[in-house]
Each structure stands twice: as structure tokens, then as C-alpha cells.
Simulated scan of single mutants.
Amino acid sequence: MVTQRRQPSFSEIVDAVKATPAATPPESDRPGVRADGQIIDPLGRAYTETARDISSAAAHDAAAAGAQVAWDPCGCGGYCGLRWFDVVDVARMVVAGRPNIRRTKKAYGSISEYRGEDGRVLLLVEADVRWGDFLA
């Protein structure tokens, strides 16, 4: 006669899961938004948020001073990807004037400022912001 193997009880399964060490995935250096809120640019530099909802004048001044610009077109926090603008595009944005941050019942745009350890500035433009011909 063949004996069947006994299945573990629910409490045995729970104990086994609790005893298993939790694996923490390494942080990615890919461009985009990390789980901790930092943003990684295409060159691998990390930026931390320093100001949320800055004015269009402050954003224009930062871009004129050489800030990097990234756009989150849907406003999801960058989790579906960011569009990165190069130096030439940012210069065209500066020439176009201040951005128009739209805030209505159905539209909510914002610009946040991030800084890297080396002092570089990144502007994260989210959703409904018009800036020249680049953001609309």
C-alpha cells in the first residue's frame, strides 16, 4: 500500500514564510522615479525634491540658469516614464517665456524643483503645463 505524503498545515506554511528573510530588491539606476521619491536622470545622477509647486517665474529662472527639465505628461508621478529635454530644448523653453501652469476643475499642472548632491537643479513638470511648443 502506498502512503500519501501529508500536506503542511496553514500554521506551518505561515511559520515557514515568517522564517524566510525578506529580500529587498536593489535600487535601480535607470532613469525615472525611485520608490523613495528620488529621480534618476539619464546620466545616473540622483535628485531629491526641494520644493513642490514652484511658480512659473521660479521655473523660468531655474531653466534660464541651466536646470534640466523632465516632463511627466500624465501626472502619475513619473511611474510610466518621463520625457527628458536636452539643453537646446530647455533654451527654447526659456526663449518662449514663462510656463503656463493650468489649474482648473479638470486640469492640474505643477512644477517641482529637485536638486542633486552636486547642486544641479532638475525641474519636474507634471501634467497640464504649457511651455512653448514642448509641453501642452
Rank of each mutant, 00 (worst) to 15 (best):
G77Q: 15
V88Y: 11
P99E: 05
P99K: 08
W131M: 01
R98H: 08
T50I: 06
K105C: 04
V94D: 01
V125R: 08
V87Q: 00
Q7G: 10
T20W: 15
P25E: 06
G132C: 03
G97R: 07
P99T: 04
A107E: 09
A35P: 14
A67L: 12
A35F: 11
V95S: 12
P73F: 02
D86Y: 05
V69K: 13
A35T: 14
G119M: 07
A59E: 09
G109S: 10
S110R: 04
R98C: 09
W71L: 01
G44C: 10
A91Y: 08
R5P: 07
C80Y: 15
L123F: 13
Q4G: 03
A107Q: 07
A70R: 08
P31T: 01
R98V: 11
A22K: 15
G77S: 14
R120C: 04
D36G: 09
V95Y: 10
D72V: 14
Y114V: 00
S112F: 00
Y114I: 05
V33C: 09
S11G: 11
Y114S: 00
S11A: 13
A57Y: 11
A19R: 13
V95W: 00
V33W: 09
S110D: 08
T104K: 07
P42I: 07
D61F: 04
R30G: 07
A107D: 00
R102I: 09
I39V: 13
A35Q: 12
R115I: 00
I54G: 06
I13Q: 07
A91C: 02
E27G: 10
G77E: 06
S112L: 00
G66E: 09
S11Q: 11
G109R: 14
A57E: 15
V2A: 12
V121S: 06
A35G: 12
R115M: 01
P25G: 08
A46E: 01
D89A: 13
P26H: 03
P25R: 12
G116K: 00
L122G: 05
S9P: 09
R6S: 10
G109F: 04
R45T: 08
M93Y: 04
C74F: 15
M1R: 14
D41F: 10
A46D: 05
I111N: 00
Y114M: 07
Y114K: 01
A127C: 07
F85V: 04
R45V: 07
E49K: 10
A51Q: 12
G119R: 02
D15A: 15
I39N: 01
W84M: 01
G77V: 13
E126C: 11
I111M: 09
V125C: 10
G32F: 14
E12D: 11
P73I: 12
L124N: 03
V69T: 03
A91L: 05
D61C: 02
M93R: 11
R98P: 14
G116M: 00
S56K: 00
A91R: 12
